[in-house]
Design a protein around this nucleic acid. Structure first.
Lengths: 157, 157
DNA sequence: CTTGAAAGAGACACGTC
DNA sequence: GACGTGTCTCTTTCAAG
């Protein structure tokens, strides 16, 4: 399933993860390829789905988002139906930025952003907990974000 | 501290979060502004730091990254020195994608990616745990990622 | 704050090796 | 696959409303 990339592809991914606004011309110079070749490779990375999208990272604090929380969730009963309905909810809520199925004593972990504590509380009670399958919500408030990146370490691969 | 944005700014952020590769011309059409005005506003968002960076989202599975883990960390003793040395480590490791300071019984939560279980284990033992201040690592393996976005819900603000 | 126009640069599709 | 050229579109700057 894993796709083999050569050093040029890796260099392109590294650069584009760092700064996607770089022009194809500058990118080609940086990694030592001709502009047309570089463009063809980048397009190929998009077409194969290795590059999923180009996006913009926004400073949430400057927009007034003051609360980030991690919530461990348990469903009861945990079956195909409750899982489906839970995940349907999750995908509806833009406040939920991440959702992972876990091993261990908790079924899911959510990362939730909110304007302030009151709006977080309202979201949990008025929206999330409205789903009767949710039997437990264990919230940890994030005091500070020390690191947050979406860059995949290309070298590890 | 929160900066007030008008509807045009919000529309720009929404679009750019969705797709940062859109041309300024198309962006201006979508939100009903002239190209030069739209560009000026976008540049302003970058200068004020509301837009932190443009980046590329890479499909980690296609690169052969098979393990994602959440690790709850405790430091002992928890003081200025151990915190500093721990965060210095964290910022060195590209495998650590996210690090949050938490309220509650655990000090930090890390999100870690690795090629496979063995390389995850090696990372924890040979790198992370080499720091003597770390007194506990409680790992939950991610079985599947149900949702993962970096888009800030602009409407919430 | 917005519009319009003009110049410069880059993207993209060729053909060639 | 990689490179070079030409066309065409977009960005970007400037003057003006």
């Amino acid at each position: 399933m894993a796709i083999i990339l050569d050093d040029n592809d890796k260099a392109i991914l590294r650069e584009l993860q760092e700064d996607a606004s770089i022009s194809n011309l500058n990118l080609s110079k940086k990694i030592g390829l001709s502009p047309s070749t570089c463009l063809a490779r980048t397009k190929n990375l998009v077409e194969t789905g290795i590059i999923k999208k180009f996006t913009t990272i926004v400073d949430e604090k400057k927009l007034g988002i003051e609360v980030t929380a991690l919530a461990l969730i348990n469903l009861s009963p945990l079956n195909r139906e409750t899982i489906h309905s839970f995940l349907e909810d999750i995908n509806k809520y833009p406040q939920v930025q991440e959702c992972y199925t876990l091993t261990g004593s908790h079924d899911y972990m959510l990362k939730i952003v909110a304007k302030d504590m009151e709006s977080y509380r309202n979201f949990i009670i008025d929206s999330l907990m409205q789903n009767p399958a949710i039997s437990g919500v264990d919230t940890s408030i994030v005091m500070s974000t020390e690191k947050r990146t979406v860059s995949i370490p290309i070298d590890v691969v």
